[in-house]
Computed example of a mutant assay.
Amino acid sequence: MRQSVTELQIDVGLSITVADDGDWIVKADGREFKLEEISDFYRAWLLLERPYPDVKAAFDQIALNVNVTIPFPFAKLIGSALKAKSGQWTDRAMTWVSFLTETEKASLKDLFIEARDSKWASQKSRQLARQYLNEIERSGQSG
């Protein structure tokens, strides 16, 4: 008998699941934190060390198992990592941006501008930020 998965382990004592009210939450050392604002997502950055398709599949399965209609907000996780102004987390987050919808990318426009113009982001991340900004401009979505 297959056990139905309802949470994704990120690290020891750290996991993401869905609360009874349908909100995505981080469980950290027995405490629960809602994932609502971009600033709430720093506890989930370790997910960025994994391949996006694996994490998306895991969250899709959890959403199915707990019958939640709100998909995991990947754009906010990526935005949180970009906001940190950390070269390491920006590099990791940038590898996930291509999986976002045009609307989700547009919602991160200001953070792409910061990364593009920054000294802390790697050259590769600055180039990706420039590329995503060009895509946003072409698609006519200005966030």
Rank of each mutant, 00 (worst) to 15 (best):
T90I: 11
A44W: 00
S86I: 08
K27N: 10
R50K: 10
A81K: 02
E32A: 13
N65E: 13
G79A: 15
D23Y: 09
S39N: 10
D20M: 11
M94F: 11
I62G: 01
E36L: 04
K83P: 00
A28N: 06
R31W: 03
L46W: 01
A63L: 07
G22Y: 05
G79Y: 05
D20L: 07
F41E: 09
T69Y: 11
L77Q: 02
N65V: 08
V66K: 14
A28H: 05
I16V: 13
V18S: 01
I62E: 02
G30M: 14
D54F: 04
L47I: 00
N67S: 15
D40H: 07
P51T: 12
P53V: 13
D54Y: 13
K27Y: 04
D91A: 08
A57R: 10
F74W: 07
I38Y: 08
E37V: 06
Q88L: 08
D91K: 01
I70C: 15
L14S: 14
D54P: 00
W24I: 06
F72Y: 03
P71M: 04
D91P: 01
F74N: 03
G13Y: 07
I25C: 14
F74T: 00
S80E: 01
K83E: 12
N67Y: 15
L35C: 11
D91G: 12
R92F: 11
N67K: 12
L46I: 04
A93M: 08
G79L: 15
S80K: 02
A63R: 13
P73Y: 03
F72Q: 01
P73H: 15
K27A: 14
D60Y: 04
S80G: 10
T90H: 03
I78P: 02
D54R: 05
G79Q: 08
S80A: 12
K27P: 12
F33W: 08
K27D: 04
F59S: 00
I70N: 11
V68H: 10
A58P: 03
V68L: 04
E37M: 15
S15A: 10
S80I: 02
A44N: 13
A75W: 01
R50E: 02
R43K: 13
S15G: 11
T90R: 03
R92S: 08
F33M: 15
A58D: 12
V55I: 13
Y42Q: 06
R50D: 00
K83A: 10
D23G: 03
